[in-house]
Design a binder for these strands. Structure first.
Lengths: 218, 218
DNA sequence: AGTGAACCGGAGCACATGCTCCGTTAAAAA
DNA sequence: TTTTTAACGGAGCATGTGCTCCGGTTCACT
């Protein structure tokens, strides 16, 4: 889009990359609540430099998260195509949550991606694509209850993500218990119908957006 | 315990109650993150007064939460005895989460109760009592999968509580979809065994305690 | 090399928020 | 009524944190 803006000076390019690098590490280790100063220091850069490259902490987070999600989706799409319908869904959720452990800011970031239609649309549609592929196959195989959609998968990731956040440090892997239970709940066999109306991803965006700070352009 | 300490002055008694009242309202409406100043102002009291009665914001939260949980447990125990095994469990979870809507600080408070062995032991054991009663009955009726325990119910409340937090303002009741799915996952019929080791409530205390600020005496 | 624009760094601002200090007030005992 | 002292209130401290400002520096073009 904004390709022919202007070539950056060499030091600017280098610094931008160092900031991104440091931010990636910092967000992964400490979550989205790291002090911006820590990131700047780790990048060997001043606050001014950081804020010239990224208008806002959230913009920086967005940039980092975008990379992460891209990598995640590449991996997920490939895994999805290589596995059976139900196993694919299981693996997807498991991978998503395992990633949350390695990168404490990921789920926060994903929430913001979902909450923001203005940024990272591309990521969002890739995620939708992968999730819907998995859902379609599981539905067609008759293994997934018919009354769940994309938004329910997102909600599942969010809710179990909370358990990861709370217990992972002291009881690694505890979240897997909850995941097993939830996966059984997602099975078609013996499910009881959901009476509450379903939700599109766009609706979920709007809903989550309501309670989360918004993220804007790069 | 500390009953015959010393009779409080009349204005002190009145102020203490006013603080508790204001705090209850404030925590319910805004969650545990309200500014202490707001509470003091709403109580018509100075900061000094507030902090003489409650050594810490968390002590105040603890006092408020204790009342809430007591009332909740009274209600839950009665409801449990009046309903069928499975319905009782369903109702319990539904009530717990509905309460979280009316009182935004409740789940935060519950987490801290769980995380703190030093305060509110009484509440904790009452909760355990009620939850175990529900689980026992549902297990005996063969409706609840045998590999879940008290701690899994706590985790369920925590995880779906996250959805309440995120979506309730914009999409009231959306959390019920996730609850339905999870409840189906808790059913004995057609469950797949959980391979991850189970957890006692004490273990969960320790785990959650790890990631949450601790709460101390009265 | 010389010059100007682009870029850098970090002190400092603005704001939020938990908590304390201490001069003042008023309840209750004498 | 006087005196004692528990209780009061709110300005202010300490800390954390997102972000800005501006004097100095460095790159890149001539």
């Amino acid at each position: 889009m904004t390709a022919p803006a202007k070539p950056l000076r060499r030091d600017a390019v280098r610094n931008r990359e160092q900031i991104l690098q440091a931010a990636t590490t910092a967000f992964a280790e400490r979550g989205a609540n790291v002090d911006v100063r820590k990131i700047a220091r780790a990048a060997g850069v001043g606050m001014g430099t950081l804020y010239r490259h990224f208008a806002t902490k959230d913009h920086l987070l967005g940039a980092v998260i975008k990379r992460d999600i891209d990598a995640w989706m590449d991996e997920a799409l490939q895994a999805a195509q290589e596995s059976a319908p139900w196993a694919g869904l299981e693996t997807f959720l498991e991978t998503a949550l395992a990633r949350q452990i390695a990168d404490r800011a990921l789920m926060d970031g994903v929430f913001r991606v979902l909450a923001s239609t203005s940024l990272l649309d591309e990521c969002r549609s890739r995620m939708s694509e992968v999730v819907n592929l998995l859902l379609d196959r599981a539905h067609r195989a008759g293994e997934l209850r018919p009354d769940v959609g994309e938004a329910d998968i997102a909600l599942t990731m969010m809710s179990i993500g909370k358990i990861v956040e709370l217990t992972e440090d002291a009881r690694p892997g505890l979240w897997r218990r909850q995941l097993r239970i939830t996966l059984d709940g997602l099975r078609a066999a013996g499910h009881t119908p959901i009476t509450e109306p379903p939700l599109t991803i766009a609706d979920l965006d709007a809903a989550v957006c309501h309670s989360l700070p918004k993220l804007e352009n790069s």
